[in-house]
């Protein structure tokens, strides 16, 4: 058992995968590098020592003490790195457990509410219906938030599964525009869609890419002011499929632009115009696209609108 444990400790790459951080930041890998540095510096100290110090015992003592100091330092540094990485992983697991636990009472509430609102338990007055609707809307909001939190925790613990299947992005966008119609109409926003002819299919995870486009359309509608106009374009560019969504909404202030893909970030004007929103959407979008080997970017001007784009590889 102990030998097995030692061997599992030696599997640096396996241990690094658990943290889902780049290999250059992984504590186990850093420890390995530091070990090599120590060996080399010991050899150099030995070479220099034998050259300049006559007494071989003193030279040996010098080499040993320098090696020991370096080793202790390396251990302390990599240990603290490891603790940080571990704390980060625990935090993600905690979020995952909490959001799973929140789901059960939430679905109980939603289903009970559905029974009440159906009128089967007695007639509901207009005034009551208004309040029931508030309850339903807010439980929907909570459900979305829990769903986003779960997605984030999956991204962070490297447990986000990713399928590869062939599908038409054009078809998917058309479906999504249809499903957003009630929301866009209610927000007085018009969505137009333009796709280049004979676009190739893409090979990616359809459900995840759907989540990406859903988030982008949702944002575009949510942050329009007055009469909204959203233009979606799909074309081929540099051997990739290029998606673009342009809105005439509130835009992102210049100072906030570098933070938009950060977790929980909401720009100042966004929270002023729209109280809903967790600040997780664009973080999720970016993480999914990274996994899909895609790219994302945007241009935005406060008060004028934003254009978000992403590309996906064809094969």
């Amino acid at each position: 058992m102990t030998i097995k444990k030692i061997f599992s400790q030696l599997d640096f790459f396996g241990q690094c995968r658990r943290y889902d951080i780049p290999i250059s930041q992984c504590p186990q890998f850093l420890f390995l590098i530091m070990g090599l540095v120590i060996i080399f510096s010991s050899i150099i100290t030995y070479a220099l020592g034998t050259r300049y110090i006559r007494d071989p015992e003193i030279a040996l003592l010098l080499v040993l003490s320098i090696t020991a100091v370096l080793l202790i330092l390396a251990y302390l540094i990599s240990r603290s790195f490891e603790r940080l990485a571990q704390a980060n992983r625990l935090k993600s697991e905690f979020v995952s457990i909490v959001s799973h636990q929140l789901r059960s009472p939430l679905s109980n509430m939603r289903w009970a509410l559905e029974v009440l609102m159906s009128g089967k338990m007695g007639k509901i007055e207009e005034k009551q219906l208004e309040y029931f609707s508030i309850l339903r809307e807010n439980s929907d909001r909570m459900r979305e938030l829990v769903k986003d939190l779960l997605t984030v925790s999956r991204i962070e613990t490297a447990r986000l599964s990713f399928k590869k299947e062939m599908f038409s992005l054009e078809k998917l966008i058309k479906e999504l525009i249809c499903s957003f119609e009630p929301f866009s109409k209610a927000s007085n926003t018009e969505i137009s869609f333009q796709a280049e002819k004979d676009l190739p299919m893409v090979v990616s995870d359809r459900e995840k890419i759907k989540l990406v486009i859903e988030n982008l359309i949702d944002n575009a509608i949510r942050y329009t002011k007055g009469k909204g106009k959203i233009e979606i374009k799909l074309k081929k560019k540099d051997g990739r499929v290029y998606f673009e969504i342009k809105d005439n909404g509130v835009g992102i202030p210049k100072g906030d632009q570098k933070y938009v893909f950060q977790k929980f970030f909401r720009s100042k004007n966004a929270s002023r115009y729209q109280t809903e929103g967790s600040g997780l959407g664009l973080y999720i979008v970016k993480s999914i696209l990274e996994k899909a080997k895609g790219k994302i970017g945007f241009r935005s001007q406060e008060g004028k609108g934003s254009t978000f784009w992403f590309t996906l590889p064809i094969e």
């Binding site: 059960s104 679905s107 109980n108 289903w111 009970a112 559905e114 029974v115 089967k120």
Partner: peptide, 15 residues
């Protein structure tokens, strides 16, 4: 194991 769910869904299914 959640009796609340048994009540809501159970009732609707019976209906």
């Amino acid at each position: 194991d959640e009796s609340a769910l048994q009540k809501t869904l159970g009732e609707v299914l019976r209906e």
